[in-house]
């Protein structure tokens, strides 16, 4: 539905602008992830000569690596592995950001049915990100 007073052509242009914005957002997030991960990888080089942990038995990550807050807190102390993990969090956040932007896009189009549908998806994603608690 076009907002009142806006022609169909203008609506299409606005819609295209939103799509371009989403495209740039995704690209920006992926590039930012790569930069953060490479930065962490460089800091990690000194520990690269140690014998790798036994990945064939599952022990699970330490508690600090199991929540968004924990990873970020450790990353800001300069911990190389936590910085790499923060890059992974940024990657997980990318599709979530995309859904969040779509809420505003549908709000702009006054398509309230899709505002609600998109909010449901966003809610499910945030539920998962909080660890399903």
């Amino acid at each position: 539905m076009a907002p009142r007073g806006i022609s169909e052509a203008e609506e299409a242009r606005e819609y295209h602008k939103i799509e371009l914005f989403i495209g740039n957002l995704l690209r920006g997030c992926v590039i930012a992830t790569v930069i953060v991960v490479i930065f962490g990888a460089v800091l990690f080089i000194p520990s690269a000569y140690s014998v790798h942990p036994a990945y064939h038995t599952f022990r699970g990550e330490p508690a600090a690596f199991r929540s968004v807050g924990g990873v970020l807190a450790l990353a800001f102390t300069g911990d190389a592995k936590a910085i790499i993990e923060a890059g992974m969090l940024l990657l997980i956040l990318t599709p979530i950001l995309r859904v969040a932007v779509s809420v505003f896009a549908f709000l702009y189009e006054k398509d309230y049915l899709y505002v609600v549908l998109t909010l449901i998806v966003l809610g499910l994603l945030l539920f998962s990100l909080s660890g399903g608690a």
């Binding site: 022990r59 968004v68 969090l89 399903g132």
Partner: peptide
């Protein structure tokens, strides 16, 4: 989006290892 929906749960279970994922 689908993958992000389970990634959070797996993070909290300690499945996502930075040294493997990097």
């Amino acid at each position: 989006v689908t993958a992000a929906a389970s990634a959070g749960i797996y993070l909290s279970r300690g499945y996502i290892d930075p040294v493997l994922a990097m």
